[in-house]
Structures are given as C-alpha cells and as structure tokens.
C-alpha cells in the first residue's frame, strides 16, 4: 500500500489535514516525520504541510529549512522522488532552494483566507495528471506571505519549462488581476522544479477533499501522485 510521509515542524498546523486525507479518504498509509529525524524511510510521496513553522521567525520557512530532517528531504528530492510543499511548505521549499524565487508579503497587506479559483496550467505532471488541461478548480488559501516573486529570467525559465502549474484565475479561467489574491507575478499559485518532482503551492488542496468542506477539487493533487481514489 502506498505510503505518504508528512513532515511535522514546530508550528505546522495542516499536518493532520494531510494525514486525514491520505488515511481516511484515500485509504492509504500516512506517517508523520518529525523535524529532528535524520533518516527517512521509503515513501511514495512526502508532504511539507502548511502552518507557521518556527513561528515564521526571520522569514516564513527560513528556520525550518535548517531542521535536521531537511537534509534528508533535499536528498530525497534530488533522487527524483515526489515532494510537495503546501503553503508554509512552499515557503520552506523556496528558502531551501528546491524551488526558485521567493514568497513575499501579499500586496494588499492582509492575511487572505478564502476560496480561490485556480487554473491547471500544466496537467502533464505527476501531481496534476488527474485533472484535465486548463481545468478550473476551487480550493482555499490562508496566508500573508504568498506573493510569488522571481526575477524576469527565472520567470522565463519557469515558462519555458512548463513549470508553472497552478495560476489564480476567475471562475471562467481568466488570469485577471482581480482574481489574484496576493500580487503574485503571472498569477502564480504553484510551481514545480525543472525535473518535475517537486511541487510548491500556496493554496490548500488538503482542505478541499470532501464536499462537507465545500470542494473536492484538491483531491486530484493527491490521487495524481498516489493513484486512484
């Protein structure tokens, strides 16, 4: 049975949500990975969950990046295995240099906690293959530091490599400024590395896996990596 590792940093708070989705909705194995662990078991995917690791001190994700477990996570990612960082997990991935660019304060200077629409900009990846190309999906965001920034050459590389995976859009799939909740360049909500095994995204797919929560559109991220529901 497939097994997912969920990393727990001090201040992670979406770890149980991911664990619940894997165990109770997908009926697969999930295990927590403590931030002080220095060896990793074999996992089919690892999730860096959302939250406020180390109280967001210094910069969101900056301290977590130096957690003992991160050395192993970097090795795991370099070996081409599936790694996904959600929200604070995305912030950790950019701080660790596993994904390019940076996440800075939302342009509106507000913590945005609401449902957003996302366009699946690249469906041909191990994390998005259960969506249809260009599909518009809905899931929540909850962040203050989710404004994706990168230099022009990095943006161009992301575009050239089809590494932009999710973009904020309106209900019709249009990438408008109004639909961009945080000022992210190119409406970027999620990106992957060049090798396409590391995904970082600010929206929370794990909070959109049951109709009782308003949407099941997030499930596709998990079923894509782990195989059908």
């Amino acid at each position: 049975m497939k097994k997912v590792g969920v990393v727990v940093f001090p201040g992670s708070n979406c770890d149980y949500d991911v664990y619940h989705v894997v165990k109770k909705i997908l009926n697969l194995n999930a295990e927590y990975i403590w931030h002080k662990d220095t060896s990793l078991r074999d996992y089919d995917a690892i999730v860096l969950p959302g939250g406020f690791s180390y109280g967001d001190n210094l910069r969101a994700g900056a301290i977590a990046r130096f957690s003992p477990v991160m050395q192993e996570i970097v090795k795991y990612a370099k070996a081409g295995k599936p790694l996904i960082g959600i929200c604070n997990g995305f912030q950790v991935l950019v701080e660790a240099g596993l994904l390019p660019g940076a996440l800075i304060t939302n342009t509106g200077l507000r913590f945005r906690c609401e449902d957003v629409y996302l366009k699946v900009a690249n469906q041909n990846t191990m994390f998005t293959r259960d969506y249809t190309p260009g599909q518009v999906i809905k899931m929540p965001i909850a962040h203050y530091t989710g404004n994706y920034f990168a230099t022009d050459d990095v943006l161009k590389t992301l575009q050239d490599n089809d590494s932009i995976i999710f973009q904020y859009c309106d209900a019709n799939g249009e990438l408008t400024d109004d639909a961009n909740p945080n000022g992210s360049l190119l409406n970027i909500a999620g990106i992957m590395n060049r090798e396409k095994n590391v995904l970082g995204m600010m929206p929370h797919p794990e909070r959109a896996c049951e109709m009782i929560l308003g949407s099941t559109d997030g499930l596709g991220v998990f079923t894509s990596i782990l195989g059908g529901k």
Binding site: L58, R59, A62, F66, V94, E95, G101, A102, I104, F149, A150, T151
Partner: peptide
Amino acid sequence: KLLSNPVI
C-alpha cells in the same frame, strides 16, 4: 544562507 534571502 540564513539572515537574508538573496532573492529579495
């Protein structure tokens, strides 16, 4: 590596 993020 830690005190600043050279990207920003």
